[in-house]
Design a protein around this nucleic acid. Structure first.
Length: 541
RNA sequence: GCACCUGUAGCUCAAUUGGAUAGAGCAUCUGACUACGGAUCAGAAGGUUGAGGGUUCGAAUCCUUCCAGGUGCACCA
């Protein structure tokens, strides 16, 4: 429907030369008396044309040609809105597009031929994924799905660091637990990894090597073993949520291939860094930033900024049109430095999109569940999936805007009742499947003659279904999964209303067939939408 | 102290990015199947959008000053 509106306004350009298509927006009004779509375009033109919005609206209206006879009513309303109402025949005929395209309905070509990289999770292999990583993982995967839906060729990438102090402590934690299992009396340090999973890894070493590795004091052995085990666990958890990565990028490789050194040299050539107190500083104040930042410590080790910059340069070299980074709120202060560094070196940072999500807290029985990684009393993502299942986990992580804190209500998530919002969507789908199963038993078929329909609930549902591609587009372009979620919720609601008011089966042949087709279309859109969210559309519940 | 995020119905959150009368779910109260799944539907009640000021045809949204909560502010990542 929106396509048609843009087409109509495009035709208008030959008559009214002030029309600029990319400045026009159409939206679904809050009140149905205002029609199916409305535009505020006359208001936008008012200043430029020095006329009242109302006059402009009238002028547009007089020149509009409805070539396909799609509108039942077009009118100027309020002080200059233009409202459009579509004929039901146009709506129901358009619905055949949904049925014909099936799984492809909602897949767009707009960004076809462009490459996107989505980097997310990127947790270092020091322990199982936490609930916080869960939000990052599910959101990142959904953004990747959305970009795919609008035509991008998407790669999912996991960036990790398996060097440095953290990993040494991890390795030594495992070593000590292993020795403990061998009966040695160990004084386990407070600032080591306390988690149960460390003991599990130690047990695996014991199983595999018995006491042969007892006297190994090379931490590398323990490090590699632990890393392998932890990654295995992380991937298993992600797999349960339906998340798979195309690439794993090891930060260490940047050192091995001399990329870090390269970046330093480039900064030096640009004369944008200087030495002070034995450290190398990046002169960000020259770019109008508040303060300079250290890129190489006096110990000779780079700070995180350098590898992060080098990593992004590698991404640029791989020639993506879009690079999305997904971080938790704790990274808020770090990425501006990285972007500044890239800009100094002449990279177009508009291709980098940084999405920051706020933290997750677990609420149980109205009380905050306190979590601390050091004490290892955190809830792992795996435990969460055990408790409520993958679909609920995904939905709960997606149902809030990323800029808001997320209270994961465990008590609510566990409920298999109408209080749990994910079931509302899934139930609508299961219900449709029920009807379609029943129809097959009775030998009824959907037809393509939908325009025999005309009840309010049928029209409302049909119109909503046709908006799906536009919702996918808006959702992807705004990196906002909530637009899609809200849409699907409304869709389920409209279907339930329709279902309640009108029976599908047991009507006249042509009505039953047409309603079956409407159900089928609703099923397609629900499936396609849920699939972008990575949530199952069950046939039975 | 500085930067970023948040503040909307009793609770958890929306609001097509500056649009028309601020909407959902839960909780509360009323109602609705001898037929396709009642995990549903219809209705009631619930609001000075944290507070004040400003910008304009028009503000929950933008600017500004406060108030409250969260996160970060290292030669940690």
């Amino acid at each position: 429907m929106k396509d048609y509106l843009y087409k109509v306004f495009n035709d208008l350009k030959s008559k009214l030369d002030f029309i600029e298509i990319d400045k026009i927006t159409f939206n679904v009004p809050n009140f149905k008396e205002h029609g199916d779509f409305a535009t505020n375009y006359p208001f936008i033109l008012a200043k430029q044309l020095k006329k009242s919005p109302k006059e402009i609206a009238k002028e547009i209206l007089e020149n509009l040609t409805d070539s396909e006879n799609a509108f039942s009513c077009v009118e100027v309303a309020g002080n200059g809105f233009i409202n459009f109402k579509f004929r039901k025949e146009f709506i129901f005929n358009s619905l055949n597009k949904v049925l014909n395209e099936g799984k492809e309905f909602g897949k767009l070509k707009k960004y076809f031929g462009r490459k996107a990289l989505v980097e997310f999770v990127s947790a270092n292999p020091t322990g199982p994924l936490t609930v916080g990583h869960g939000r990052n993982a599910v959101f990142g995967d959904t953004i990747a799905n959305l970009l795919e839906a609008v035509g991008y060729e998407v790669e999912r990438e996991y960036y990790f660091n398996n060097a440095g102090r953290q990993m040494r402590i991890l390795a030594d934690s495992v070593r000590l637990r292993y020795l403990e299992l061998l009966g040695e009396k160990i004084d386990f340090p407070d600032d080591y990894y306390q988690g149960e999973y460390i003991i599990d890894i130690a047990k695996k070493i014991l199983d595999e090597f018995s006491d042969k590795t007892r006297n190994i004091d090379d931490l590398n052995f323990f490090k590699e073993f632990a890393e392998k085990e932890i990654f295995k666990g992380i991937n298993k958890t992600l797999e349960r949520l339906g998340i798979r990565f195309d690439n794993y990028f090891n930060e260490n490789s940047l050192y091995e291939t001399g990329k870090i050194e390269e970046v330093i040299n480039q900064f030096k050539t640009k004369e944008i860094c200087y030495e002070k107190d034995g450290a190398l500083w990046l002169a960000l104040t020259k770019l109008g930033k508040e303060r300079d930042k250290v890129i190489v410590k006096s110990t000779g080790e780079p700070t995180y900024r350098l590898p992060d910059i080098a990593y992004h340069i590698e991404k640029f070299k791989r020639d993506y049109d879009l690079m999305v980074d997904i971080f938790g709120a704790d990274h808020i202060a770090t990425y501006p430095d990285v972007l500044a560094g890239l800009e100094i070196l002449g990279y177009d940072t508009r291709k980098v999109k940084v999405l920051i999500h706020q933290f997750v807290t677990i609420v149980q029985d109205g009380e905050l569940v306190k979590m601390s990684t050091r004490k290892a009393n955190f809830i792992t993502l795996d435990q969460l999936i055990d408790e409520v299942g993958a679909d609920v986990v995904r939905y709960f992580f997606l149902m809030r805007s990323i800029s808001s804190h997320l209270n994961f209500e465990l008590t609510l998530a566990k409920k298999q009742t109408d209080e749990n919002p994910v079931f509302y969507l899934q139930y609508a789908h299961a219900r449709i499947c029920g009807i379609l199963r029943f129809a097959i038993e009775q030998g009824k078929q959907p037809s393509d003659k939908l325009s025999v329909l005309g009840e309010d609930e049928e029209i409302n549902l049909a119109k909503h279904l046709l908006n799906f591609p536009d919702v996918v587009l808006r959702s992807a372009e705004n990196y906002d999964q909530l637009i899609l979620i809200t849409y699907l919720h409304e869709l389920a609601e409209l279907f339930h209303k329709f279902y309640h008011e009108h029976r599908v089966l047991g009507q006249s042949e042509e009505i039953t067939s047409a309603r079956l087709a409407l159900c089928k279309a609703a099923q397609i859109v629900l499936q396609n939408g849920l699939s972008i969210l990575g949530i199952n559309a069950p046939e039975r519940m």
